[in-house]
Simulated assay, not measured.
Amino acid sequence: MTLIRTPADETEARAVQDDLRTRVVLDEPGPPPGAGLVTGVDVAYDDERGVVVAAAVVLDAATLDVVEETTASGRVAFPYVPGLLAFREIPTVLAALESLEHGPGLVVCDGYGLAHPRRFGLASHLGVLTGLPVIGVAKNPFTFAYDPPGGSRGDASPLVADDGAVVGRALRTQDGVKPVFVSVGHRVSLDNACAHTLALSPDFRIPESTRRADALCRRALREATAG
C-alpha cells in the first residue's frame, strides 16, 4: 500500500513537488513496446458532489486486448489549481492501481510528466510514488511551444519550455490528425515513450490504454452519482 498525505494548501503542495521531483529517474529506457502489460489510467470528476472516480485498464501490449480493469472512487480532497492537479487525482488513481491483480507494467496517464511548469506532472508524481515506469500522453501542450510535426503517423517535433529545455514531443499518431503530447514520467526514455504511444494507437489519435480508461471512468462516475 502506497501511503500519501493530502497537502494542507498550495504552498505545501509545491514543497511536496519540489521534494519528490528529485527522485524522478530519467536514465532508464523502460520496458520494450509491444511486450508485457500496459495500463491506462484516467480520472473523471463530479465537482458539484465532490466525487472523483479513477479507472485503470490493463492491456496485453502485443494484442491490445483488455486483461483487467478496475475503478476506485473517492472524495475530491484538494482544490483545482493549475499545475497541482495531481493532488486531486493521485489518491484515487493509486487505489485503482492497487486493486489490480495483474501488472500493471508500464502505466500511461492522460496528462503530463516532465511537460509541466514544475517538471513534475501526474505521470512523474505517480511514477515516483509507485516506482513504476510511467509516461504521460496529453491531448494539449499545456504552456509549451512546438513546431507542428509532419502530417504522417510517427512524425514528431520537440515540446520546448521557455528556458529551451525539451520536455516532450508533439507526436502524430494518425495521418492528418492533431498530434498528442508525450512526456516522460519516470523510468522511461522519451524515445521509448513515443514508441509505446504509437504502438498503443493503431486506429485512433488517443492510445487505447487511456481511451479505454477514459470511457470506463466516465461510466463509473455516472454509476457512482446516479440518483
Results as ranks from 00 to 15, higher is better:
175 D>E: 10
148 P>V: 01
190 L>I: 14
97 L>W: 01
116 H>E: 08
114 L>I: 05
109 C>V: 14
145 A>V: 06
112 Y>A: 08
87 F>A: 07
139 K>P: 14
157 S>M: 07
181 F>C: 06
129 L>S: 04
146 Y>E: 07
148 P>Y: 00
185 G>A: 08
173 T>I: 12
114 L>E: 13
137 V>H: 06
183 S>E: 13
105 G>A: 04
166 V>K: 00
113 G>Q: 08
186 H>W: 00
172 R>F: 04
123 A>G: 10
187 R>K: 15
83 G>L: 11
169 R>P: 12
184 V>W: 02
110 D>M: 12
116 H>S: 10
139 K>Q: 07
117 P>G: 09
108 V>N: 11
187 R>F: 11
177 V>T: 15
170 A>R: 11
180 V>Q: 05
145 A>C: 03
118 R>I: 12
86 A>P: 14
172 R>T: 15
117 P>C: 03
182 V>I: 08
177 V>A: 05
178 K>H: 02
118 R>K: 09
191 D>H: 00
139 K>Y: 13
130 T>P: 09
87 F>V: 11
180 V>N: 11
180 V>Y: 02
181 F>P: 11
138 A>P: 04
101 E>T: 15
181 F>Q: 03
96 A>I: 12
121 G>E: 15
136 G>R: 04
133 P>E: 14
138 A>L: 04
142 F>G: 01
180 V>H: 04
122 L>I: 14
191 D>E: 15
98 E>Q: 13
157 S>T: 14
184 V>T: 13
168 G>N: 07
177 V>W: 01
128 V>S: 11
129 L>G: 10
132 L>C: 03
82 P>E: 10
162 D>I: 00
130 T>N: 06
163 D>A: 03
